[in-house]
Design a protein around this nucleic acid. Structure first.
Length: 273
DNA sequence: CGGGTTACCTGACGGC
DNA sequence: TGCCGTCAGGTAACCC
């Protein structure tokens, strides 16, 4: 579900809402049965501490404390939300209760999310973080030369390639289709046959679409909400995603869709080659 | 190693 | 109304 813009929106929202750095009074584990079990020692790591900073790496959010960090991935349906009395849900996996009386819940109906603990100084070797590729908004790392070199001899479709988190992080199923539309490159093109110029267009398009989506608060298709509960607004500005059979917003021809790499993929066969 | 498929889960939606 | 099939912002574990 959430890709880089949604995760970044949630991170920024949490950072703002927790700016006064309230002390964590207690952590209540409700159910630990997500993809990988929630570490049972989470409460003792967090209680009595405060979040010194809230950062993002790829689609992960890191909540820094003085003695390590809480790591979260939202999977498809994960969310962080402040929950008032009476707003509890059976899909709440744990609550973080602050001294000021607020209660932050990690909610994840489909349970594809990840919660883990990162020991101080061990970020680079953490199993979930160590194989991640470059940040797409880091222009010094994600550029035409990088994408061109990384894609040589790769036969996978370019859409699958740019969604590979070991290459470049943060791009998921929505923004892969949207970026390739803007770049004028068909998603089925073998990555290894992209020209340098096409790589440059893909990099620029991906950075633009991610930044615009962040500015709009992300895309709310189904579950996703910002940290304050509001919907994102970028879904209104999708050119192709979820628009099968509808007219291309540029040329009017019917938007195409088929499964590539196991994921629904959208493109305009007139605008993209 | 690269590339392809399957599995993990719940809930929403459309067709009958 | 209800039942059933399909699909969903992701990723890890397999297989070849």
């Amino acid at each position: 579900m959430p890709e880089l813009p949604e995760v970044e929106t949630v991170r920024a929202g949490l950072e703002k809402l927790l700016r006064d750095r309230p002390v964590i009074q207690n952590v209540k584990l409700m159910r630990g049965d997500i993809r990988f079990p929630i570490p049972p020692e989470l409460p003792k790591r967090l209680e009595g501490r405060r979040f010194e900073a809230i950062r993002r790496r790829a689609k992960y959010i890191l909540f820094d404390t003085a003695q390590g960090a809480l790591l979260s991935h939202l999977g498809m349906t994960g969310s962080w939300r402040f929950v008032e009395a009476g707003e509890e849900d059976k899909h709440d996996h744990f609550y973080i209760e602050f001294h000021d009386g607020r209660r932050l819940a990690f909610r994840d109906p489909r349970r594809f999310g990840i919660i883990d603990w990162v020991d101080p100084g061990k970020e680079r070797e953490h199993p979930r973080l160590r194989s991640l590729g470059v940040e797409p908004l880091d222009a010094s790392a994600f550029n035409d030369e990088f994408l061109f070199q990384a894609s040589r001899k790769r036969t996978a479709p370019v859409k699958t390639f740019i969604m590979d988190q070991r290459i470049v992080v943060g791009i998921g199923n929505i923004y892969a289709s949207e970026a390739l539309f803007r770049a004028g490159v068909r998603p089925s093109r073998p990555a290894g046959r992209l020209t340098k110029a096409e790589c440059a267009r893909i990099v620029k398009a991906a950075q633009e679409v991610l930044l615009e989506a962040i500015a709009a608060g992300g895309s709310s298709i189904r579950d996703y909400r910002q940290a304050d509960g509001e919907e994102g607004g970028f879904q209104k500005r999708h050119f192709v995603y979820d628009r099968k059979g509808l007219p291309c917003r540029i040329c009017g021809s019917s938007v195409k869709s088929r499964v590539i790499g196991g994921r629904s993929t959208y493109w305009c066969s007139t605008c993209q080659s």
